[in-house]
Design a protein around this nucleic acid. Structure first.
Lengths: 112, 112
DNA sequence: CAATAATATTCCTTGACAGGAATATTCTGT
DNA sequence: ACAGAATATTCCTGTCAAGGAATATTATTG
């Protein structure tokens, strides 16, 4: 806990990192495996993983020579919670209400 | 349609822009109002709004002298859909399954 | 302890981005 | 058409992030 949601967004804003996350959705992977599948050089893979790690999106588990990265759930749940407040917005068709209010305003206090 | 989700993420990765979006959640606002509430100078507000606009997160509706910005629903729904595939991950406790697989692997084909 | 595999870190360079200040644009009313 | 309000754009500058290449670190095996 204690990760800022903007960190989540910026981390996922980079295409390679988004791709990594999508790979990890299907299960934990090794740095080398990630680099292979994404056509990345190993150092770049490590660097992106570092960013994801610091954003709390993944965690790492050393195994022998390797480091296995896997998704952490919390940031996704946080994202979900954040989205929740917007779901109500579109479900209530807030949109139309506002159009209505704008009409009122645009007609400068016309009283019927 | 046709907006990349990475664009959504990068747009929301900037704290001021995230803040703008959260303001707009409660209803459409004018550039000036946004600048006021966020303690931003008008040009910066306009610039951030431009980014949000190009990412498809907001739309603008000219009214007289002003421009009223409001949220567009689609990117949020897209985000929601994207998150959906991760919900199943954490709901199925995929995590434990993987720990199990890792154990197997770490013990190098030990057959009981 | 040497050799090797897997991964991380550093240094460098380049490009993107954010804020500040100034200026341009657009619309309205007269 | 002009003045003024609201907003957009441009230019400049400094910072930060990403890729490439080289090197350092860590753990395993013999």
């Amino acid at each position: 806990m204690g990760f800022k949601i903007t960190a989540t967004f910026t981390a996922l804003g980079e295409p390679n990192r988004l791709h990594i996350v999508e790979l990890l959705r299907d299960g934990p992977l090794t740095v080398g495996e990630i680099a292979d599948r994404l056509q990345l050089r190993q150092p770049q893979a490590s660097k992106h993983l570092r960013v994801l790690l610091e954003a709390g999106l993944v965690e790492v588990q050393p195994m022998a020579n390797r480091r296995i990265y896997k998704l952490r759930l919390e940031p996704f749940q946080a994202l979900d919670a954040w989205l929740e407040s917007y779901r109500s917005v579109w479900e209530e068709r807030f949109d139309n209400l506002e159009n209505y209010l704008q009409q009122l305003q645009s007609e400068e206090n016309k009283q019927n």
